[in-house]
């Protein structure tokens, strides 16, 4: 287990290093053909649908009706224009508000907590970690009902702050787990030096620890952002017209405009764009965060 925990940090540093670490000389013809086939299946099954959606979103409605979309059809922004004229800005802004604010709160709470679980751990740190993990076993549907009824009784429904609180709770355990796995890699000498210089805890966290684990903070932030942005169940039940988020708006849009494929594809692309951009722009950080979070 020690090996499992320590290695990825080193292995990540160079992609050439990874190649050597893989089982060498597995280039048997059969195994190469096997993995070639897998590569194609993965490609066709998992990339093509997204590309089709993208292509269709740029077609006129008549051309979009052909399935699979024709590559030769002329491209147009018609679908996007019609989508944006249907009032998607409030829900998009709501999603942005809920995702960004909850992510910031999560990081502010999770960072000190992860510190208390790793660098100077409380005695029962493993129990605390297990408590955090166990919260993931509660089905969201079970939590939804009491929260809904409670919010209803205090007239807190359709309020973006309710979603912010829910998303903060939902993402806090993951963030603590991830940040902890980054924090236990921080060299102790660094903290000792800060202490000798007389830095208090807040200052140590801010100016010594935070810069070192920036990749971890970024990865945790990205994952929290993506989870909040994509959340549907709570958003659908807890919001109405005012606090509606983008996925809820999208489901409504698809229900009412489902026959207009180009428009629907354009809507799906727009709603997915922020997370796709976030995921694509920071893939190495995401890979690091995802793998560290679970491998340890």
């Amino acid at each position: 287990m020690t090996v499992t925990a320590k290695q990825p940090a080193r292995a990540r540093q160079g992609s050439t290093g990874l190649r050597q670490e893989g089982p060498p000389g597995l280039g048997g013809r059969r195994s190469r053909a096997f993995f070639g086939i897998i590569a194609w299946i993965v490609g066709i099954l998992f990339v093509l649908p997204i590309l089709w959606m993208l292509l269709t979103s740029f077609h006129s409605e008549e051309n979009a009706a052909t399935n699979p979309p024709s590559i030769a059809a002329p491209l147009t922004l018609q679908g996007y224009r019609e989508f944006f004229s249907s009032g998607p800005w409030p829900p998009l802004l709501n999603s942005l508000t809920a995702s960004v604010i909850s992510t910031i709160i999560v990081l502010l709470l999770a960072f000190p907590a992860a510190y208390a679980l790793s660098i100077r751990p409380v005695k029962r740190w493993s129990d605390v970690m297990f408590f955090f993990l166990s919260t993931k076993m509660l089905p969201m549907v079970a939590a939804l009902l009491p929260i809904y009824l409670f919010a209803q009784s205090v007239s807190f429904l359709d309020n973006i702050w309710l979603l912010i609180i829910v998303y903060t709770t939902m993402n806090l355990p993951i963030a603590v787990w991830m940040l902890r796995s980054f924090l236990i890699e921080v060299p102790i000498e660094m903290l000792e030096a800060a202490q000798i210089d007389g830095a208090g805890l807040a200052r140590t966290l801010r100016s010594v620890v935070a810069p070192v684990i920036t990749p971890g903070l970024a990865a945790a932030a990205l994952i929290c952002f993506i989870f909040s942005w994509n959340e549907l169940l709570f958003a659908r039940v807890l919001t109405g017209t005012r606090a509606e988020t983008a996925p809820v708006f999208l489901t409504g849009f698809v229900t009412s405009q489902g026959l207009f494929l180009a428009k629907v594809c354009a809507a799906s692309i727009v709603v997915s764009l922020p997370v796709l951009a976030a995921g694509f722009g920071a893939q190495d950080k995401l890979v690091q965060g995802l793998s560290l979070g679970a491998v340890k």
């Binding site: 993965v42 490609g43 998992f46 990339v47 997204i50 959606m53 993506i226 942005w229 994509n230 549907l232 996925p247 999208l250 489901t251 799906s268 709603v271 997915s272 997370v275 796709l276 976030a278 995921g279 694509f280 893939q283 995401l286 890979v287």
Partner: peptide, 13 residues
Amino acid sequence: ASALLAWALPAVT
């Protein structure tokens, strides 16, 4: 990159 695309794509979409 393509895997992350599938991962980040909202379940709705």
